Amino acid sequence: MVHEVRGVVARVKHGPVSLETILVPDPGPGEALVQVQACGVCHTDLHYREGGINDDFPFLLGHEAAGIVEAVGAGVTEVAPGDYVILNWRAVCGSCRACLRGKPWYCFATHNAQQKMTLADGTALSPALGIGAFVEKTLVAAGQCTKVDPAAAPAVAGLLGCGVMAGLGAVLNTGAVTRGDSVAVIGCGGVGNAAIAGARLAGATTIIGVDLSDRKLDWARQFGATHTVNAGQADVVEAIRELTGGFGADVVVEAVGRPETYRQAFYARDLAGTVVLVGVPTPEMQLELPLLDVFGRGGSLKSSWYGDCLPSRDFPMLISLYLQGRLDLDAFVTERIGLGDIEDAFAKMQRGEVLRSVVEL
Score class of each variant (00 low, 15 high):
191 V>M: 00
205 T>M: 10
130 G>W: 06
59 F>T: 11
271 L>K: 10
70 E>T: 07
220 A>Y: 01
64 E>C: 04
12 V>L: 00
187 G>H: 03
198 G>V: 08
156 V>T: 11
229 V>M: 06
184 A>C: 09
74 A>T: 01
230 N>V: 00
312 S>I: 01
246 G>L: 04
116 K>C: 10
168 L>C: 07
326 R>S: 15
351 R>T: 01
34 V>W: 09
209 G>L: 10
319 I>V: 15
122 G>A: 02
158 G>M: 03
347 A>L: 13
179 R>A: 15
115 Q>D: 12
361 L>T: 08
17 V>P: 03
96 C>T: 10
229 V>S: 06
256 V>I: 15
174 T>D: 09
278 V>Q: 07
198 G>A: 11
30 G>A: 14
53 I>H: 01
351 R>M: 10
75 G>R: 11
316 P>D: 04
68 I>H: 06
69 V>S: 14
138 T>I: 13
109 A>Y: 07
222 Q>A: 12
299 G>L: 09
88 N>Q: 09
138 T>Y: 05
94 G>L: 06
258 R>V: 03
249 A>Q: 05
65 A>C: 12
96 C>K: 12
149 D>T: 14
328 D>N: 14
333 V>G: 12
71 A>K: 11
223 F>I: 08
277 L>N: 06
255 A>K: 03
44 T>H: 01
251 V>E: 00
300 S>H: 12
349 M>S: 11
204 A>Y: 05
269 R>T: 08
211 D>L: 08
239 A>T: 12
128 A>Q: 08
50 E>I: 03
203 G>W: 10
268 A>H: 07
162 C>W: 03
142 A>Y: 12
353 E>Q: 12
113 A>N: 14
161 G>N: 01
132 G>P: 13
72 V>H: 02
40 G>P: 05
78 E>S: 13
41 V>R: 09
339 L>F: 06
341 D>W: 01
47 H>W: 06
138 T>P: 09
29 P>I: 01
280 V>A: 04
103 K>Q: 10
4 E>G: 00
316 P>Q: 08
89 W>H: 14
154 P>V: 04
173 N>Y: 06
28 G>I: 00
194 A>Y: 04
82 G>Y: 00
108 F>M: 10
103 K>W: 08
289 L>M: 13
93 C>I: 13
226 T>K: 12
45 D>C: 01
124 A>D: 15
201 L>V: 08
117 M>Q: 08
37 Q>N: 09
40 G>N: 06
68 I>L: 14
254 E>P: 11
146 T>E: 00
233 Q>C: 02
